[in-house]
């Protein structure tokens, strides 16, 4: 991540005025104040891919909240990430149903294959690995989700085929 005294945002040139505008429009269509904070953060993460410090500050200013409160909320919820993610996020389900059907082996195989640990991003920014507890597709356990595609009955063997679908 860029350090805080540079003005450029941390998205390495991907973000632009249009994205900030979209965020501001979203904020403007919502009530000012704490009630809208989580919805605004969801939108911001959707737009930027993650929530870097300058976004915290901006959201805090726009909603009239102390930035410490925004940070408190961002860190409380697992869904919000302060680290940039790869182009594709691979979410391995670690819910009970998936766990008893071998999710741990799938995660281990995936980490080995990509050479990164859970929570990390490949150097080429192609993939990030995260885990979650249950996507509600337990009937197909073990399940992984790449972006928003659910892949069921995953085995270590099938991983290559799945990953090849994402460039």
């Amino acid at each position: 991540m860029t350090d805080s005294n540079t003005t450029a945002c941390a998205c390495e040139g991907q973000c632009n005025a249009a994205v900030w505008n979209e965020l501001d429009e979203f904020i403007a269509s919502h009530e000012r104040g704490r009630n809208s904070l989580i919805q605004v953060l969801h939108k911001a993460q959707e737009l930027f891919g993650y929530l870097p410090p300058d976004v915290h500050q901006h959201v805090a200013d726009q909603l009239g909240l102390p930035v410490s409160e925004v940070l408190g909320v961002v860190t409380f919820y697992h869904y919000f990430s302060m680290q940039p993610r790869g182009r594709h996020t691979i979410n391995v389900c670690m819910g009970t149903a998936c766990y008893v059907r071998g999710a741990k082996k799938v995660l281990e195989a995936l980490q080995e294959k990509l050479g990164i640990k859970m929570g990390e991003t490949t150097p080429d920014r192609r993939f990030s690995i995260t885990t979650q507890r249950c996507f509600g597709a337990c009937g197909l356990a073990p399940v992984i989700m790449v972006n928003s595609d659910v892949h069921g009955r995953v085995t270590a063997n099938k991983l290559t085929g799945i990953l090849n679908q994402y460039e």
Binding site: M94, G95, T96, A97, R133, C134, G136, A137, C138, G139
Partner: peptide, 12 residues
């Protein structure tokens, strides 16, 4: 919020 990891009736 369906938190129990292994339940999916609310989703359905």
């Amino acid at each position: 919020d369906e938190g129990d990891p292994g339940a999916f009736m609310d989703r359905s």
